[in-house]
């Protein structure tokens, strides 16, 4: 029998809010890639606006965590859950920023008559979305093994980024006229690679929440 029913409900609510915040960033990432590949500048603009919503979630969840720390003075696993949530929202907020940055860069392609979005960009985007989704799920479901899978997936992300770098250098060598757009795509790839790193950070907190030991991967 649990004697901290209200606290348990508040912890569940905290996790629910975290999932909702994450869903918005997933939507932002998906839309930013669609906007880029389909040259949908209105959609790109909507992603930039959505970033405000993520910031609001961050502020509200932060308040919720601080209130729980003061009111419930959690210890042991409860303390780890609340402190992990406080750290995780920073990463999720940064993911929202990166998605908004990708969309802001998409708007810079407006003047280009035509361009080919490199194949690796949507692939990296797809992997980034999957990593973020599974990272948050690993925390909410208290599953450190799922966190390990995400950490492993980051190697794949890093490999794709390295490959993209090579391709970009090659492209610029062959045709220096495309250097401007190639560099913009390079920046987008870097943002996606950074999103993978944020997903790994989230997984580190999942593992800390389970083991009580924070290990940087």
């Amino acid at each position: 029998m649990t004697v901290r029913k209200i606290f348990d409900e508040e912890l569940s609510e905290l996790k629910l809010q975290l999932v909702k915040m994450c869903r918005v960033t997933e939507e932002m990432m998906a839309d930013s890639i669609t906007a880029l590949t389909q040259r949908d500048y209105e959609l790109a603009q909507s992603v930039v606006y959505l970033d405000k919503k993520v910031d609001e979630y961050e502020m509200n969840i932060e308040k919720q965590c601080l209130r729980l720390l003061i009111k419930q003075q959690p210890v042991a696993r409860d303390f780890r859950t609340v402190s992990s949530a406080l750290k995780i929202i920073t990463d999720v907020e940064r993911i929202g920023d990166q998605a908004a940055d990708i969309s802001a860069l998409t708007s810079s392609f407006k003047e280009e008559k035509s361009f080919d979005c490199p194949d690796l960009i949507p692939k990296m985007g797809e992997l980034a979305i999957k990593m973020v989704k599974e990272a948050i799920n690993s925390f909410v479901n208290e599953n450190p093994f799922a966190a390990d899978d995400v950490i492993k997936a980051d190697d794949e992300m890093d490999d794709m980024f390295d490959e993209f770098k090579k391709q970009t250098v090659e492209k610029i060598k062959q045709n220096s006229q495309c250097a401007d757009t190639a560099i913009l795509f390079m920046m987008i790839a870097k943002y996606l690679e950074r999103i993978g790193d944020h997903a790994v950070n989230i997984c580190e907190w999942t593992k800390y929440n389970e083991s009580g030991v924070h290990v940087k991967v």
């Binding site: 901290r4 210890v75 042991a76 409860d78 303390f79 780890r80 009580g212």
Partner: peptide, 15 residues
Amino acid sequence: FTNPKNEKTENYITG
């Protein structure tokens, strides 16, 4: 208080 080894300790200190 951050990482008790025994489940009984965890259950007691977390209420």
